[in-house]
Amino acid sequence: MTDDRAAHGATGTTGTTVRIGVLGAARIVKTALTQPAHEVPEVTVAALAARDPARARAHADRLGIPHVHDSYDALLADPAIDAVYVAVPNGLHATWSERALRAGKHVLVEKPVTANESEARRLAQVAEETGRIACEAMHPLYHPLTDRVRALLAAGTIGEIRHLEAHIAFPIPSSKDIRWSYELGGGALMDLGVYAVALLRTYAGATGPAAAEITEVVQAKAPTRTKDVDRRVDARLRFAGGATGRIVATMWGWPPLATRCLVEGTKGRLTVLNPLGPQMFNRITVTAAGRRTRESVPREPSTYACQLRAFARAVVDGERPRTDAVHFVPTMGVIDAIYRRAGLPIRGARVADPVADEVA
């Protein structure tokens, strides 16, 4: 694939393979990118850059990434790179995603897409100005499990949606983990709650886009572990269609992995077990008309492979990804509103370390 974007359309591609460069020597790169790339022939992971070139080389060698650049800017200047996977800490997502877009690269950025709504709106504007794709790596939304849940809800299986809940728990015990840093965009809401908000908006929108909008954060509690960094968040929401919602997300305590969603309707209820990692296990339970039915969707392909394939289609064919600005701007607006209601500052109010690059 060449870099002759003017001659070959808005996507800037001439072939069917998207060459991706990685910003950040993060552990998530293996799970979210290099492993699923083996299942997606439309992409190749071509290069990596990190703040420490030696660390970048070691990480690239472990993951089988052939090229290493001495800096993020050097990778962005590489004409052999078509798109960038941004795996730096949350507080730096906006900065490096914008630089990548202005360098002519498409962007797949780890969740949450930015530190706050203002940054998300700016990123959307830059993507529009540059004609490049900015896509949040909200991988569960690309899996057939989400499609099946939406289909059941759209079919009126449980009637009109009246209430939705999402519960997510994953402990981060080490106080040195960057997810406990306010400056780097840490917090349970940012790390886990953003999944909950995205899932509930997606489920609520099964009957129409307007129903997905969250119009009010009625109540929010967010006890902290470190200064201004929430260890747990419990928020009550109101949707445009009249439904109520609740999200509970915690990085403190046990069980080590507990993820489930609930949708209650006028005719019954639907529960989803493990919507974040359905490739490990999943189950949908519907209780309606006096009957209870259970089903699962095939575990493979993984959420990450589904996401990567969709991103490649967006770059090569211009197919709109599910998690572009229409998705991520309103989601970040809800995140900001929850923090404000809980009495905590939104993320991004204090400057992040410009060279940190490690995430889980």
Score class of each variant (00 low, 15 high):
residue 2 T to V: 11
residue 4 D to F: 04
residue 5 R to F: 05
residue 5 R to K: 14
residue 7 A to K: 14
residue 8 H to W: 13
residue 10 A to Y: 06
residue 14 T to S: 12
residue 21 G to V: 03
residue 22 V to P: 05
residue 22 V to G: 06
residue 29 V to R: 11
residue 39 E to C: 00
residue 41 P to S: 05
residue 45 V to R: 00
residue 46 A to N: 07
residue 48 L to G: 11
residue 50 A to P: 01
residue 50 A to R: 01
residue 51 R to E: 14
residue 56 A to S: 03
residue 60 A to Y: 15
residue 62 R to H: 13
residue 64 G to C: 03
residue 67 H to I: 14
residue 67 H to D: 15
residue 68 V to K: 09
residue 71 S to W: 02
residue 72 Y to W: 10
residue 74 A to C: 01
residue 78 D to W: 02
residue 82 D to W: 03
residue 83 A to H: 12
residue 83 A to N: 13
residue 84 V to H: 04
residue 85 Y to R: 00
residue 85 Y to M: 03
residue 86 V to W: 11
residue 86 V to P: 07
residue 90 N to I: 08
residue 93 H to W: 13
residue 102 R to V: 13
residue 103 A to S: 04
residue 106 H to D: 06
residue 106 H to G: 06
residue 107 V to H: 11
residue 110 E to K: 10
residue 110 E to P: 03
residue 111 K to F: 14
residue 113 V to I: 04
residue 115 A to M: 11
residue 119 E to P: 08
residue 119 E to W: 10
residue 121 R to W: 12
residue 121 R to Y: 13
residue 122 R to G: 15
residue 123 L to S: 10
residue 125 Q to Y: 11
residue 129 E to I: 07
residue 129 E to G: 07
residue 131 G to D: 12
residue 132 R to S: 06
residue 133 I to Y: 12
residue 134 A to V: 00
residue 135 C to A: 09
residue 136 E to R: 02
residue 137 A to K: 11
residue 140 P to R: 02
residue 143 H to E: 05
residue 148 R to E: 05
residue 156 G to N: 15
residue 159 G to S: 04
residue 160 E to M: 11
residue 162 R to V: 15
residue 163 H to A: 09
residue 167 H to T: 12
residue 169 A to T: 10
residue 170 F to A: 05
residue 175 S to D: 05
residue 182 Y to L: 04
residue 183 E to D: 13
residue 184 L to R: 01
residue 184 L to M: 06
residue 186 G to H: 03
residue 187 G to V: 07
residue 187 G to H: 03
residue 187 G to P: 02
residue 187 G to C: 09
residue 189 L to D: 06
residue 192 L to F: 01
residue 195 Y to R: 07
residue 196 A to H: 08
residue 197 V to L: 14
residue 201 R to F: 07
residue 202 T to Q: 02
residue 204 A to V: 05
residue 206 A to P: 10
residue 206 A to M: 09
residue 206 A to I: 12
residue 216 E to W: 04
residue 218 V to R: 00
residue 221 K to S: 15
residue 225 R to M: 00
residue 227 K to M: 01
residue 227 K to W: 00
residue 227 K to I: 00
residue 227 K to E: 01
residue 238 R to Y: 09
residue 240 A to S: 15
residue 244 T to A: 08
residue 244 T to F: 05
residue 252 W to H: 08
residue 252 W to A: 05
residue 255 P to T: 11
residue 257 L to S: 14
residue 260 R to M: 14
residue 264 E to A: 12
residue 269 R to T: 13
residue 269 R to N: 14
residue 271 T to K: 03
residue 272 V to L: 00
residue 274 N to D: 09
residue 275 P to A: 00
residue 278 P to Y: 10
residue 281 F to V: 11
residue 282 N to R: 01
residue 286 V to Q: 07
residue 290 G to V: 04
residue 291 R to N: 11
residue 291 R to G: 08
residue 295 E to P: 06
residue 297 V to A: 13
residue 297 V to M: 13
residue 299 R to W: 06
residue 302 S to K: 02
residue 303 T to R: 08
residue 306 C to Q: 05
residue 314 A to F: 06
residue 315 V to P: 07
residue 317 D to T: 01
residue 318 G to R: 12
residue 323 T to M: 06
residue 324 D to W: 07
residue 325 A to E: 12
residue 332 M to I: 09
residue 333 G to H: 04
residue 339 Y to D: 13
residue 343 G to E: 10
residue 347 R to P: 00
residue 348 G to W: 07
residue 349 A to C: 13
residue 349 A to M: 14
residue 350 R to N: 09
residue 354 P to M: 03
residue 355 V to A: 14
residue 355 V to G: 10
residue 358 E to Y: 13
